[in-house]
């Protein structure tokens, strides 16, 4: 049974990772599960300098979901490299480092800093965090800016680049397209959805920041649709995420066109979810006689044609042709001998 997938030049031993911001820096969860069983570890967003984050309360539980406005609290590049990288780099699975900035130059500078670090699996560009005043979502909801951020990072690093898209757009299609055109190796879909919860007794927002981002099971169908839309448009692989609680949720994303999946909010209440997804995925493949997980990618059978006119089978065609290990020659050529050790292990 093959579980390995390619995210551009980055090979994952299986398609299950975790969503940035829900897994700390990996080390916290190492007490409960073997991180080397994951496809990759994805860490919380890092920018140049340490960030204090938003005032409390920072999260609010809502029906089948979680609203958050943490404000990207973090140690900055130097703090991350000092405190967390020594642990992460000795893992046998790749680390995907989520990065962000408040200007295009800052994004590029963070990308450049990590390009100098040996062993990084990939960089995930966070252009879609709704909870910081500058940067974040503004880059993810302006196609022109998005293109410039991706291009600026592409210029300074040979690491695989994953662009994490915002759901807060009329159509994700142009964003997926521009991210691919400017050199993204893969897409992450989706970030949290902007949302508001109000305490009716105090008439104040339930978050210190006012508004926040909605995650958890309640956003899953939205995320599956966005993955499907993007998969019909671009040929680069997609990491699907949004409300995954179990293998069935994850398989929906794969069928919609995702090459890999990330477990997010569930890590907060069921820390073993990612490994349970992996076990459940294997059981599903066994039950359905699927020998290669890549044969699930994009295999939803949609009635009629897509809104953008693509043929019904395109998702499947893409799944079969665009994702094999040899499909992305650019990544292979570029990385050559500098391929991070974590990225090639299986």
């Amino acid at each position: 049974m093959n579980l390995a997938v390619q995210l551009g030049p980055l090979r994952l031993q299986n398609p299950v990772t975790v969503a940035s911001g829900t897994f700390g820096y990996g080390v916290e969860y190492a007490r409960l599960l073997d991180l080397n069983q994951l496809g990759a570890v994805t860490v919380k967003g890092i920018c140049l300098k340490p960030v204090r984050g938003n005032p409390t309360p920072r999260t609010a539980e809502v029906a089948s979901g979680l609203l958050n406005a943490i404000g990207l609290q973090g140690p900055g590049v130097d703090g991350f490299l000092r405190q967390y990288w020594p642990f992460l780099r000795q893992l046998r699975v790749p680390t995907i480092i989520n990065i962000w900035g408040t200007t295009i130059e800052e994004y590029a500078e963070v990308a450049r800093r990590f390009d100098e670090v040996e062993g990084v699996g990939a960089l995930e560009l966070n252009v879609s965090c709704p909870n910081i005043k500058e940067g974040g979502a503004q880059f993810g909801t302006d196609c022109r800016l998005l293109g410039r951020v991706v291009a600026a990072c592409r210029r300074v690093t040979r690491l695989p680049l994953i662009t994490k898209l915002s759901p807060n757009v009329t159509s994700i299609v142009p964003y997926a397209r521009v991210a691919a055109e400017e050199g993204s190796d893969a897409l992450s879909i989706m970030n949290s959805y902007p949302a508001l919860a109000i305490d009716i007794e105090t008439r104040r927002p339930r978050l210190g920041n006012g508004v926040g981002g909605l995650t958890g099971p309640c956003i899953k169908p939205i995320a599956v649709k966005l993955v499907y839309d993007a998969a019909c448009t671009v040929r680069i692989p997609i990491i699907g995420m949004g409300g995954i609680q179990n293998a069935a949720d994850a398989i929906e994303f794969l069928l919609a066109g995702a090459t890999a999946v990330a477990v997010g909010t569930a890590n907060f209440y069921a820390p073993r979810t990612a490994l349970e997804v992996l076990e459940g995925l294997q059981a599903y493949m066994h039950r359905h006689g699927v020998a290669d997980v890549r044969d699930l990618i994009g295999r939803v059978e949609m009635p009629g044609k897509f809104e953008n006119g693509s043929a019904l089978g395109e998702g499947s065609v893409r799944g079969a042709s665009g994702l094999g290990p040899s499909a992305d020659t650019r990544g292979g050529n570029l990385l050559g001998s500098s391929m991070p050790s974590g990225a090639t292990s299986g």
């Binding site: 911001g21 829900t22 897994f23 700390g24 916290e28 969860y29 007490r31 984050g53 409390t56 309360p57 920072r58 999260t59 979680l66 958050n68 943490i70 609290q73 890590n267 907060f268 209440y269 820390p271």
Partner: peptide, 16 residues
């Protein structure tokens, strides 16, 4: 007694 979410140092909800 702070509002918590993950309880294990990851989500940064319960900060003071």
């Amino acid at each position: 007694d702070e509002r918590m979410c993950c309880g294990m140092g990851v989500c940064l909800t319960c900060v003071v």
